[in-house]
């Protein structure tokens, strides 16, 4: 299953996303948890803490490359090997949940 947890701030999205990820992993499923919040704190709810939490790198922007299409237009595409990205930038928490975190959102026109 591929599920996004959405809603107004403070409704408990992160608690639900983290706990649901752990519960699914306990059922023997391979789980990837993605923190797409600009103020990431899914790691705490998952139980990834201490030194490992400090090690989590946000996904860098250079995974995307601008490519010229046949019609001359350009398109930004994901060019990295996703499994390698998960290995390099993800951390594994309790119950085997793999966590990746969105990189810092740019300001001043980058948004």
């Amino acid at each position: 299953m591929r599920i996004a947890i959405a809603g107004k701030g403070g409704t408990g999205k992160t608690t639900i996303a983290g706990t649901l990820s752990r519960e699914l992993a306990r059922r023997g499923r391979q789980v990837l948890a993605v923190d797409a919040d600009t103020n990431p704190n899914l790691a705490v709810t998952l139980g990834v803490s201490g030194p490992r939490a400090q090690d989590i790198l946000g996904l860098p922007r250079n995974l995307m490359t601008r490519q010229t299409q046949s019609d001359g237009s350009t398109k930004v595409v994901f060019t990295a090997d996703p499994e390698e990205v998960l290995r390099e930038y993800g951390v594994t928490g309790p119950d085997g949940v793999r966590l990746v975190i969105m990189g810092k959102v740019g300001h001043g026109g980058a948004g």
Partner: peptide, 14 residues
């Protein structure tokens, strides 16, 4: 690449 081989849970921005 992996289809439904793994569960993906995305914690979205508020």
């Amino acid at each position: 690449r992996t289809g439904n081989g793994r569960d993906i849970i995305v914690d979205m921005e508020a």
